[in-house]
Design a protein around this nucleic acid. Sequence first.
RNA 1: GCCGAUGUAGCUCAGUGGUAGAGCAGCGGUUUUGUAAACCGCCGGUCGUCGGUUCGAGUCCGACCAUCGGCUCCA
Length: 613
Amino acid sequence: MERFFYCLVLCYGGLSSMSVEVELEESVGYTPIQRMRHSAAHVMAEAVQEIFPDARFGIGPAIEDGFYYDFELPRALTPDDLPDIEKRMARIVAGKYPFVRDRWPREKALEYFRDKGQVYKVELIENLPDAEVGIFQQHNFLDLCRGPHVANTGEIGPFKLMRVAGAYWRGDENRPMLQRLYGTAWFTKEELEQYLWRLEEAQKRDHRKLGRELKLFVLSEDLPAGVPMFLPRGETLRHQMESYVRETQERYGYQHVWTAHLGKVRLYKTSKHWFTYRENMFPVMQGEQETSEDDAYVLKPMNCPHHITLYKSQMHSYRELPVRYAEFATLYRYEKAGTLTGLARVRSLTQDDAHVFLRPDQIQEEFDRAFNLTLEVFNTYGLEDYWIALSLRDPQKKEDYVGSDEVWEKAENALRAAVDAKGVEYKAVIGEAAFYGPKVDFMVRDALGREWQCSTIQLDFVQPENFGLEYIAEDGQAHRPIIIHRAVTGSTERFMALIIEHFAGAFPVWLSPVQAMVIPIADRHIEYAYTVMETLKAAGVRVEVDTRSERMNAKVRDAQMQKIPYMLVVGDREAAENAVAVRLRTNENLGATPLDSFVERITDIIKTKSRDL
RNA sequence: GCCGAUGUAGCUCAGUGGUAGAGCAGCGGUUUUGUAAACCGCCGGUCGUCGGUUCGAGUCCGACCAUCGGCUCCA
């Protein structure tokens, strides 16, 4: 659930109608660089207007690292158009035209833009509350704009147009698609170059590229889009990741269950998913004989109904609550073709899902438990670049949510208390709660700056109703439990994408598919190399021997490029002394080390999940 | 799904209507090597798929599939 929050947070200076509310809420002014970038957007708009006098203009805000402007044009822009637009922009910048601010009465502005056929501007003005609207003009371009701008176009720093993309007007897929031109702008040439360099570096750690280079996973045209397959090394990685979460959550009191990949329509009708989520579910076939819709099979898109069915199959006393069912389950969801991205967004995903069935008085404790678990896991991975969203109900729109005020208040307070107690930073987001309850989401950024939701902890008052869940309380009566849905790493696939990029493929030893490569210098050392391998294998180390008829240099290079943590070079000296010459992938050379000491070192590092070598 | 771009050997890429190329990888041979690429040779492609235009299509057109950059929604 990536949310492009930077749009909300950083677009406040644009012409977006939504920026009105955002400005009130965020109430952050333009920083100088944002002001300059927003001005660059205006200059870009003028350049486009020169080429297409009939262009219609959308909005052109500053965003993180740059700016964009949305246009409706008589033809599609291609990357070949960018140099021309850049050249025209450069001319306008060189002209040092002042940005002239004005204020027009609404009616005058409406008339002006209507007359020009600027339907998007008209719509924006119609949504503005004030009697007067802001107008900015530079050179030959006049625009509806709140500003502020730099004094003149000459103050716009080094810029570069990055790409052209489609974007629905106001992000609504029922509205026209405009052409969005993205650019970046900086105060100095050095900053621009550094930014472009950073982008290149980020691309080097793109998990799709590393996945191919490190032989982790494969996307084949012979399989549906978004259905990755994992090679031995990738499977090893995901297995390690899953085992780790599995062990950890068992320590936290979760029990694992197993449910298959098929469900029946009726199950999802009971859970109500069928009515809102149907288009995301893969149909399979009708049930045997029976042709009613209810008995048709579908691929499992989520675990909750299955875990709930398990809960319901047994009687439950208040004493045994909370019941915590966890499962690593591969789910199938039909995601729109254009949204698929490597492992970060797939159609077959493996959730490390759990459903906790609990009494109302256990909410805070259970939230805390899930929260601690997640933080512990993040800590092990050394993840720091994430933020936490506390998604709350919009009190203005209570009708959009299910559950009483009292329960919501209790749940939200419990959640907030749990987050506050952790001393971590979080952002409360009003109106982002699920309809069935408030939630906490962990948002992580990938190498290219895209945000993805990984972990989530959600309170649910609705499914217990849908399924008529019960437990027998102290009073001997049946009471309704509450459910917490939580996922620690979210989906194995997405988290793997994150981990690959986070470590740039140089995984901590415990995660590395191959932890050590034994490199015999000449053929006569192969036998000893195998001895070394067997010793390490016996100690539980994933180790291989490079027996190819290559020079040692080539073997070192290949192991290095595969980011294998330890290269164990063995020659005459090592064989004689029962030693290995340890080279780290950091290029550090530890020299000859007794095999015993190395075994001790590597097993200790694996056991402690240390990120050191 | 929508807008745009891309698709040539396992990988990275060249090839603008006239006989499909390179490097790396792979395979074979020689070399037996001390910390990031030894040398020689060979194999390898219905140019994403299907259809169309043309005397002739990797090249032009269309549809589909997939990938990439965005938009929307979701883990």
